[in-house]
């Protein structure tokens, strides 16, 4: 008996090790046990409370890295926001144009402006549509806001349009309210004005001028501009300053109206004009 006792004492270290290892293995094989989960939850809860106080220390070391990452994210997100804003604006613009195209009743060819000049005396825009798209000289160019100009030159895939800010532009217009006719011109510097209107004509600021049926190039009824100032040119005529309804500075998309002037009318008027001479 004493021998057994001595033997056990001699291997007690290994016995304890064996017991501890058996316990460890028992834990290892009962990981999903409810009690084990509970113990784990308690231990994590207690330790986590203490740890949360210390967690700010490694954060200090991480700050630089985190800062760099956030900056990169910031740049990327700013870029995305900018792109989304651009897409949203484009969407609004195109939706407006699409609605206009569907409701206008005119044969329209949509075009993007690929070049434009706004600071010269004879300003033009270059469109990405041409003869292949059935776009020809003298066709009106409009937007959902109103008249923009007319085509003056075409190639197969491109065309150039004269806009309202062009000294060569002459458009027969009439007041939408008082039906008084006049000719819209550009002075080559800054003002678009309507001339040939008698001094006693009923024109007031805010009146809108539209294209007249007297014109053989533009369909009638297209809005052109709003009167902003009414003065006297001389003893006989008024000087009416008009602001075009189309904002040329931000203009990106237009429509070319497939409007063909009435040939019979054109021929008759031409014959009459030459007969008078």
């Amino acid at each position: 008996m004493t021998r057994i006792g001595q033997f056990i004492l001699g291997i007690k270290e290994y016995l304890i090790l064996t017991v501890l290892l058996i316990f460890s293995l028992a834990f290892l094989f009962s990981n999903d046990n409810t009690q084990i989960r509970f113990l784990r939850a308690v231990a994590v809860g207690m330790f986590g409370t203490v740890q949360s106080g210390l967690s700010s220390i490694p954060n200090v070391f991480d700050l630089q890295q985190e800062n760099k990452m956030l900056r990169e994210n910031n740049i990327r997100l700013s870029n995305e926001v900018s792109n989304l804003k651009e897409a949203k604006l484009e969407n609004i613009r195109l939706t407006k144009l699409l609605n206009f195209k569907e409701t206008s009743g005119l044969g329209l060819v949509s075009a993007n402006i690929v070049n434009k000049s706004l600071i010269q005396t004879r300003n033009t825009i270059t469109l990405n549509v041409g003869e292949n798209d059935s776009v020809f000289v003298n066709m009106p160019v409009i937007t959902d806001a109103g008249l923009a100009g007319r085509i003056v030159s075409t190639s197969r895939n491109y065309s150039i349009a004269q806009i309202l800010f062009n000294k060569d532009m002459r458009i027969t217009v009439k007041s939408q309210r008082s039906r008084i006719d006049g000719i819209l011109t550009y002075d080559g510097v800054s003002a678009v004005s309507v001339i040939n209107i008698q001094k006693n004509a009923d024109i007031v600021p805010g009146d809108v001028f539209i294209t007249s049926e007297y014109s053989n190039i533009y369909p009638s009824g297209i809005p052109v501009g709003t009167v902003v100032d009414v003065g006297n040119l001389d003893n006989l005529f008024k000087k009416i300053i008009v602001v075009p309804l189309v904002d040329f500075a931000s203009l990106e998309n237009v429509f070319v109206v497939k409007y063909v002037p009435n040939k019979e009318r054109y021929a008759l008027e031409k014959t009459f004009q030459s007969g008078k001479k």
Binding site: L17, L20, L21, F23, S24, L25, A26, F27, L28, F29, S30, N31, I36, L39, R40, A43, V44, F47
Partner: peptide, 22 residues
């Protein structure tokens, strides 16, 4: 100690206990 470490680790319970004991 291994058991405590296991409870806090989120991995197998008993694994650190075995390795630390040995």
């Amino acid at each position: 100690t291994g058991l405590l470490a296991d409870f806090l680790s989120g991995t197998f319970i008993g694994l650190s206990a075995i390795s630390y004991t040995i």
